[in-house]
Amino acid sequence: MESWRRHPLVFWAMGLPGIFWLIVFFLVPLGFVWLMSFGEKRGIVDIAITGTLENYLRAFDPVYLGILFKTVRISLIVTLLCIVIGYPVAYVIAFSPPKVRTWLLLAIMLPFWINMLIRTYALIAVFRTRGYVNFTLEWLYGLLRLDALFGPFQPLPMLYNEFAVIFGIVYVFLPFAVLPMYAAIERLDRSLLEAAADLGASRFHTFLTITLPLTRSGIASAVLLVFIPALGSFLIPELLGGPNAYMIGNVIAAQFKKANDWPFGAALSFLLMYATFAILAVRPLLVRRAAKGEGAR
C-alpha cells in the first residue's frame, strides 16, 4: 500500500466519485433527517429546527413504547425461529454428499433472487380466508366429518395479525440465517466428531458438546443477519400485518406518508438506526467470545 501523496491524481480520480456520492446522496440526506428530528412542525410544510427533544420524548409515549416493544418481541421470535429451523437445515446440507449439497444450497438460495414484495404477496394467497391453508383445513374438516360435531367450517384468520408477520419475516429471512451457519458447520473439523463417536458419545451428546459450541460464530452471524433487518421491517407488516401488527417501520412510514409529521418520523427513524448500530457494536464482542470458546477447545 502506498501513500496517497505519491500519486494524488490517481488517488482523487479513483476516490472522488465514491466520496462525492456517499456524502451527497447518503450522508447529507441522513444529516437532514437528523436535523429534522430536532425540529418542530409549523404548518403543513414548514418545519423549524429548534433543537427540541420533544420528538424523542414522544417516542416514549405508551402507544409508541408499546409498538417499540412489539417490534423487538417480533424480531426476537423471528430470530429464534430462523435459528431453530435454519440450524438443522444448515447441518443436513453441510453433511450431504457434494452433489446433493450444491442442489440443496441452490434451493435455499433461490428465493434470494426473488423480490421480497413478490414473496410477501405470494404468502397472502396462502393465508387469506379463502387461501390454500384454509382450503386444506376445510377439506380435512369435511373428511373427518367434524361438521357433524362442531357445525360448518370456520376459516382460520391467519392474515392481518402477528402470526402472519412472524411467518412472513421468517419466510423472507430464513436463507440469511442458513448460509452463515452452513459455512460454520462446513468448516467444522470432522475428525473431532469421529473421535467423539469412537469414545462412545451419542450423536446428541456429540452435537451438544462439540458441534454446537464450535459453530457459535456462525450462529452469532445468523442472529445479526436476521435480527437487524427484522427490526427495520416495513413491507411485510404493512402487507401481512395491517394495523394490528404494525412495527416501528410502519409507524415511521406513516409519519412521512400519512400523518405528515416529519420531525417525529425523523426521530423514530434515528432511534431505529441507533438500535441497529448498538447491535452491530455488540457483534465483535459476541463473535470474539464465540471464537475464544472455539479456540479453548
Binding site: 496517497w4 488517488f11 440526506p29 417501520g249 412510514a253 427513524s269
Partner: peptide, 29 residues
C-alpha cells in the same frame, strides 16, 4: 491501493448503506 488520512472513517461510511434499514434510507431520500 492507497493509505490516506481518514481511511477508516471512509470505510465505515461506505459500510453504512449496507446496514442502515431500508426504511431509514427511504425517508432520508
Amino acid at each position: 491501493r492507497f493509505r490516506f488520512p481518514g481511511k477508516g472513517a471512509f470505510e465505515g461510511a461506505m459500510a453504512l448503506p449496507l446496514v442502515v434499514p431500508d426504511i431509514c434510507m427511504g425517508v432520508a431520500m
